[in-house]
Design a protein around this nucleic acid. Structure first.
Lengths: 152, 152
DNA sequence: TATTGTTATACTCTATAACTATA
DNA sequence: TATAGTTATAGAGTATAACAATA
C-alpha cells in the first residue's frame, strides 16, 4: 500500500523532553547527583533520608501519612522503619486513642544525621540557585507544589 | 547548658515542599498515577516504556545514550534490552565502524505498543493541561528542560 | 465493614566491581 | 589506556494479596 492512513511512524507523541514524567525524572536525576554523593558518605539511603526529613519537619505522625509524604508504599515503609528504629534514628509508639496507629518520632540521633548534612545540603541548593537562577528556581518550586495537588 | 549555640531543632532546612528533589518526586508520583494504570494493562514496566519512547524518538542509538536519556544504569539496561529484544520490541546490531557499540532500533511490534497507548497518553496529558493550566504546564516543562542541563 | 499496619512472595531495579572486546 | 557493554552479586525497593488488630 502506497497510501496509508495509519503511518508506521506517526507524529502522535510529544518529544520526550516535553513528556512531563520523563522531564521530571531527568531533572530529578540532575539534582540528585550531588545529594547521592552526600548520602553515600553516611550510609543513608535516599528513602531513609526522605523519611528523616518528613518526620523531622512535621513531628510525630502515623505511617500512612509518612508513606504519602515520602512517596513510599506501606510495606516498604514497614521494613525501612524497622531498620531505622533498630538503628535508633526513630521511635514508634502506639497511638493513645486509635490503637491501630503507631506514631513515629525522630530521635536525637536521627536529628544528628540531618544536622550533619545541613551545611552541605544547603550549599548544594545555593549552587543550584546560582546556576539556575533564584527567580526561576522559586517559580519552579511553586509550579511543582501546585502540581502535587492536582487530582488526575 | 541553658545557653546553647547549636539548638536541638535548628531551622536549618527548607520545608520538604521547597526541597527540589522531594518536590520533583511528589509531582512525578501525581503524574505517574494514571500512566501506571495505563501501562499495567499491557504488562510494560515504566522503564521499558521510557526506553521505547526514547528509541522511537531518536532512532537507532547506542546503549550508553539510551541509558542517559531513559535514566537507567547500563547493567540494568543490558538486562531489560535482552528481554525486550527477545519479546521482539527492539533489535540490536553491532555498529559498523566501532564494534564495541551496538545500535538499538525499535521494531514494528515495539512501535505498535507505543501507538496502542498514544490516544490514552494524550488524553492524560490533555486532562492535566486542563486542570493545571496550559500556560503553566508549558512554563513548567521549559523550566524542567533547562534544569536537566545544569551541571552541578 | 473499613482502616492501619504487618507479613509473605515474587519480581524488578540499583549499585558496585570485575571482566571482555574493541579503540 | 580508555571506552562500550556484559556479567556477577548483594542489597533494596515495588507491587500485590492476605492477614491481624482495631475502629
Amino acid at each position: 500500500m502506497t497510501t496509508d492512513d495509519t503511518p508506521d511512524t506517526p507524529q502522535s507523541f510529544r518529544s520526550t523532553d516535553r513528556s512531563l514524567p520523563i522531564a521530571l525524572l531527568r531533572a530529578r536525576e540532575t539534582v540528585m547527583g550531588p545529594i547521592r554523593d552526600m548520602l553515600t558518605s553516611s550510609q543513608i539511603s535516599e528513602q531513609k533520608w526522605r523519611i528523616l526529613r518528613v518526620v523531622a519537619e512535621a513531628g510525630p505522625m502515623d505511617q500512612t501519612l509518612i508513606a504519602d509524604r515520602a512517596c513510599l508504599l506501606l510495606p516498604s515503609l514497614t521494613r525501612i522503619l524497622r531498620a531505622m528504629e533498630s538503628d535508633g534514628l526513630l521511635t514508634r509508639v502506639q497511638h493513645a486513642q486509635d490503637k491501630r496507629k503507631s506514631m513515629v518520632s525522630i530521635t536525637p540521633a536521627g536529628r544528628d544525621i540531618i544536622n550533619m548534612h545541613a551545611a552541605q545540603s544547603n550549599a548544594i541548593f545555593e549552587t543550584l540557585e546560582a546556576k539556575f537562577g533564584a527567580d526561576e528556581l522559586h517559580r519552579l518550586l511553586d509550579l511543582l507544589e501546585k502540581l502535587q495537588d492536582i487530582d488526575l
